[in-house]
Design a protein around this nucleic acid. Structure first.
Lengths: 130, 130
DNA sequence: ATAAATGCAAAGGGTTTGCAAAGGC
DNA sequence: GCCTTTGCAAACCCTTTGCATTTAT
């Protein structure tokens, strides 16, 4: 398991902030930064525990905060299929910009946002799905 | 407490759909449709119970669904101040349209969405806050 | 009479927290 | 050694659900 360059950057960030570089933090960063699909905190914890590098869910949440603060991890929008439950993640610059504009138009300095869109996915639309 | 015209429309909707016109439904509709600020289900239940027209939270949730289905109530976006906790609600057509477009571009038939923007409100920005 | 709505309390999911124990620096 | 992180379980928030009871029609 070669250290991804992003993980190196996380280490650098931790050092810079004088935060302990722990095995858990690195393990969680590895999994989170490498995966392209959606992972729940539970999944991350389970996956790592199965791989012999046990971490608790609380630690996953705490590390996600740190990764977000470092800028190495970014929030995604979520698309949830109301029929089969599938969750798809994506990023959209325009949406991001629009939330900033909308927040500012109401006097808020935007920090972050959370968007979940519910709908029916392609598969389920054509009679398929669970 | 004069029956707001919107409540009349809710009654019409219920009749049209052959749904029972209950005291709870009307009470909840009154509070929800009259208020301009954000009310949690708990708040609605508490407020009505205090006013001598007790309703359970479950019923509030169920009635919200009905009101949404009727089109008399619409979802709002939320702006949450990270500093003082204030919650501001608003609607934005453009945002709404964009979520539809974005969902469709990924093969999803959009049904609804939930957006929460976190930031710092005007008051808290200028040293104010809590 | 019948079908639906209600209320309660339990269950659920996703996340946070308190505190003793472990571990980085 | 000091200070932070970790892990666990409990606490939390918000919402849904199961089921016996009440109610509109």
């Amino acid at each position: 398991m070669p250290d991804h360059p992003v993980v190196e950057r996380f280490i650098a960030y931790l050092r810079e902030k004088n935060l302990p570089v722990t095995a858990q933090r690195l393990a969680i960063a590895e999994v989170l930064l490498a995966s392209d699909r959606h992972l729940s905190a539970e999944e991350v914890a389970r996956e790592l525990t199965a791989a012999g590098r046990p971490v608790g869910t609380a630690t996953v949440y705490r590390t996600i905060d740190t990764l977000l603060a470092s800028g190495l991890l970014v929030h995604h929008e979520h698309l949830v299929c109301a029929h089969c439950g599938r969750v798809e993640e994506f990023r959209d610059e325009r949406l991001e910009r629009m939330t900033t504009i909308v927040a500012e138009s109401r006097g808020f300095a935007r920090q972050r946002h959370r968007l979940v869109i519910h709908g029916v996915c392609r598969d389920c639309q054509r009679g398929g799905g669970r």
